[in-house]
């Protein structure tokens, strides 16, 4: 199967200027890959750098060394230290991200938040798809017209998931997708991940819940904590 996302020698550190220039290395020599239809789970102890790796893959964090290559418009494109426009283009067409926390414009209805993320369909179709997805994730219709700021953590996470999955990007990055969900909703998410894989979508995820991870991951990738900086 085609590799859709891979890294070679990826390294990242943080320099805290407000702490006198304290340098904290987090990633070093990361060689990672994921293929179409595959789900790779990032594993490792808390604080090891799993989220840092995920965010670096998305371009949300800046990679200091090495390369990140993404399959984009039929060719492998270098993402590490790429021009912002390239990253925006990759995110539009090739890579989606479901973060742990919902961050949206206040006072916009949940349905609109999800519908906006749909690609390649008319606005009316987007709203239909969004409504279906929200219902599938057990967000009842009476909540669709409400802004999610007052929703529970679990409900907000499900809005987040709907927004991530509706785009049908070839690569999907998931950061703790089931952390705030109960067992029923976790099952629904597992179903959605399985369907995505069947469509050839490559998934990289961080799963706090081991049983969920075992159900969806084809492979795991270990992120080991580096030594503390001086």
């Amino acid at each position: 199967m085609t590799t859709l996302l891979q890294t070679a020698g990826l390294g990242k550190h943080f320099t805290l200027h407000l702490r006198g220039g304290l340098t904290i290395p987090v990633l070093q020599d990361v060689d990672f890959h994921v293929a179409a239809g595959e789900c790779v789970a990032l594993v490792g102890p808390s604080g090891a750098g799993k989220t840092t790796l995920l965010r670096s893959l998305y371009g949300n964090y800046r990679a200091d060394q090495g390369s990140i290559q993404v399959r984009h418009h039929g060719a492998m494109v270098e993402l590490a230290r790429a021009a912002p426009r390239t990253v925006v283009d990759v995110r539009t067409y090739s890579m989606g991200y479901v973060s742990q926390f919902l961050r949206v414009v206040p006072r916009v209805p949940a349905l609109d938040i999800v519908a906006e993320a749909a690609r390649g369909v008319s606005p009316e179709q987007a709203r239909t798809l969004a409504a279906a997805l929200l219902l599938r994730l057990n967000i009842p219709r009476r909540l669709h017209a409400l802004p999610p700021a007052t929703f529970s953590g679990g409900e907000q996470q499900r809005i987040n998931l709907a927004r991530g999955f509706i785009g049908r990007h070839p690569i999907l990055l998931l950061d703790e997708p089931t952390a705030s969900l109960d067992a029923d909703n976790r099952d629904i998410v597992v179903g959605m991940i399985d369907e995505a894989k069947a469509l050839g979508i490559a998934i990289v995820g961080i799963f706090h819940d081991v049983s969920t991870r075992d159900r969806v991951a084809d492979r795991t990738y270990s992120v080991a904590p580096l030594q503390d900086a001086a």
Binding site: H17, N60, Y61
Partner: peptide
């Protein structure tokens, strides 16, 4: 200068880090 979420989530310059924090 750069991608908005990258500059705000992973600020490199001391002043940006100060602003964001």
């Amino acid at each position: 200068a750069g991608l908005t979420d990258q500059v705000l989530d992973d600020p490199q310059h001391a002043y940006t880090q100060l602003l964001v924090s």
